[in-house]
């Protein structure tokens, strides 16, 4: 295994995050604070509690998921797309490095950044609302798995994209709506039965539900099912990436 290469890519990507700290960290934290103000204060004043949890606290896991999902995709997709765009991908392709090591470097860095961001948002949320994490190990496991899975997904988007529009289209048109409709700001049980059924086709529901369970032992679906869904999506992303490198899709002639 070419550990030095993995370290080089990882360091390179982390250095990029440090250079763009406002975009990588400050901006998502400000967005989260705004969500707290808008949803926590404005809506929270009307919905005081959900199953015994204050609304402000209730939305914390969903907000972390919202930011972690979008930032994982953004970080990983940009990380691999930019070398394609500038042409520096030639270095990666001509280096003695396997596809697994390439993914490990890029996805590892993107997932690390998202994890750090998730933990910062958690700390920020703690300033606004009282928080108690009933299952910290599960919370961390869900967070790490989500960071990895969606960084893999972002990597796929970055490989697939042949322009900045494509790079943005899936996060904007698919991920954001799915997250907003995936129980980030409400419990699925609050919806009419028809929309509850529709919601269960939304994969983000399982992520938010499982993550929220680790905080409050409160979930829309069984926690093991949530875990299985993340595992399924993780396997799907890994399979797709394996296929990409096997065929050279959008990377090699």
């Amino acid at each position: 295994m070419n550990i030095e290469a993995v370290k080089a890519i990882y360091r390179f990507e982390m250095a990029r995050a440090r250079r763009t700290v406002f975009q990588s960290i400050v901006s998502p934290v400000i967005s989260t604070a705004l969500y707290f103000i808008v949803f926590g204060s404005a809506i929270g004043s009307r919905i005081t509690q959900i199953e015994g949890i204050t609304y402000g606290s209730f939305i914390v896991p969903g907000l972390i998921m919202l930011m972690v999902l979008t930032q994982s995709i953004a970080n990983a997709s940009f990380g691999i797309y930019f070398p394609k765009f500038t042409g520096t991908i030639y270095e990666i392709l001509s280096a003695p490095i396997s596809s697994f090591e390439i993914v490990l470097g890029y996805v590892g860095a993107a997932a690390t950044k998202s994890l750090i961001l998730g933990l910062i948002i958690l700390a920020t949320a703690h300033l606004f609302v009282p928080l108690e994490i009933l299952h910290p190990f599960w919370m961390l496991s869900f967070l790490v798995l989500t960071c990895i899975t969606f960084s893999l997904f972002g990597f796929i988007i970055g490989v697939w994209a042949d322009g900045f529009e494509k790079l943005q289209i899936i996060p904007l048109l698919m991920i954001t709506p799915l997250v907003f409709l995936g129980g980030t700001f409400y419990s699925i049980s609050m919806l009419p039965p028809f929309w509850q059924t529709v919601s269960f086709f939304n994969p983000v529901v399982y992520l938010v539900s499982g993550f929220r369970w680790s905080f409050f032992e409160m979930a829309d679906v069984n926690v093991w099912f949530s875990l299985a869904m993340i595992g399924f999506f993780l396997a799907l992303c890994m399979g797709t990436i394996w296929w990409i490198f096997k065929t050279g899709y959008e990377i090699k002639d």
Binding site: E4, K7, A8, F12, R16, I97
Partner: peptide, 16 residues
Amino acid sequence: FETVWDTVSFTRGLFG
């Protein structure tokens, strides 16, 4: 946006 030193060091690492 990389410095000369960083980009050359990056390539060295990439090649193991």
